[in-house]
Design a protein around this nucleic acid. Structure first.
Lengths: 196, 196
DNA sequence: AATTGACCGGATTTACAATATGGTCAATTG
DNA sequence: CAATTGACCATATTGTAAATCCGGTCAATT
């Protein structure tokens, strides 16, 4: 797919440069001009690999999605109980979010100026995360570890709940520690709250 | 508090006019001029009752909050199980939200142009709703119907979950029916999802 | 004492010129 | 000749200065 190496792999240079620029400046403030400068390549060259700015951005988001999936796969141990894996992965994902400049920058851009493409990028990432959770939910259901009539909905709810606990709660209240979040999340998801 | 009636109760006229205007045009597009016109009152008169536009808006939000609380109180029957009451109230609240022009208009304004005061108003409403749920959670814990280590957090999570199921899910997926939402919500909150 | 609307200063909108940017392609290069 | 490039084009975005709008005041009026 990547072909034999020429003098330099210009496509790789461009992708790397684009990653840097989107992370540093966000979607809107990244110009094709600047990407070409960082990649030390003519602007026209970018267009031999990517038809539009959107497409280039898509490549970067795709890369990030892949990284995310790999991280999750590395974290999950199918020997362990479902809920242990779940909280471990969600924990990793949120650390990842804090650490990963691109996601932070995009979230910020969406919040501040609502750039549609940035919104789109975040949505793709979230979509990838729920798809992954969903897959694990299905597996756990098959193993008889949990009940779920609608895995997609379950995955969606899990992510929403985790984000609510982690980000939204702290907008108005004292933030919860990682441990509190994990504890509460697990307890509720596992056993509900009626007295047994 | 309201004092004996004069020729006409100008304060009431103003509050009614403001309610109409905020509902029709939102916070930003409501001008004191227009409120005075609807109330058939001089602009200066408004300022004998309300020091600022913010304060007038606060009065309207307060009114709405009161209506909300009354609706919830009317719906709850403390003879019934906690979860029955919970879904009945949430059901009513969401109908209310759809029906109530002011809430709809404010949500829209927050989404479209992010008017800080509109955001504030919605936040106050949500705050009132969670406070109410919280109170019911405490009651149910005392009655030994449910477990909850942190009623405020529990109330917050309940509202978030219900909104996620009702509004956010339908942004990307086929909307759930009221019955599906209630069923899923109840099942998860009551029993969790681990196999017992 | 209560009410009013003309009026004020600052905020917002408008209209438009200046600039920046995504994308193209004829010229250039190796 | 295939790959690369940056000057160039049309449109989108931004800066800006004038015009308008609006929250709030207060002297005049009822």
């Amino acid at each position: 797919m990547t072909g034999p190496k020429k003098s330099v792999d210009r496509r790789a240079l461009i992708v790397e440069a684009a990653g840097k620029s989107f992370s540093m400046f966000g979607y809107k403030a990244t110009t094709m001009e600047v990407v070409s400068k960082i990649a030390a390549v003519g602007k026209g060259t970018i267009y031999t690999f990517f038809a539009t700015k959107e497409e280039l951005f898509g490549e970067i988001i795709g890369q990030l999605t892949k990284e995310l999936r790999e991280l999750a796969e590395r974290t999950i141990d199918h020997e362990r109980p479902f809920f242990d894996n779940l909280s471990a992965v969600l924990h990793e994902l949120l650390l990842f979010r804090d650490k990963h400049e691109l996601m932070v920058k995009l979230s910020q851009e969406v919040r501040d100026i609502g750039t549609p493409m940035a919104k789109d990028g975040i949505a793709k990432l979230e979509q990838a995360i729920t798809a992954f959770i969903q897959q694990e939910v299905v597996l756990a259901v098959e193993k008889g570890e949990i009940r779920s009539s609608n895995p997609k909905l379950t995955a969606f709810v899990m992510l929403k709940l985790y984000v609510a606990l982690n980000s939204e709660w702290s907008k108005h209240q004292e933030p919860l520690t990682r441990k509190e979040v994990a504890g509460y999340f697990n307890e509720l998801m596992r056993d509900g709250m009626s007295v047994r």
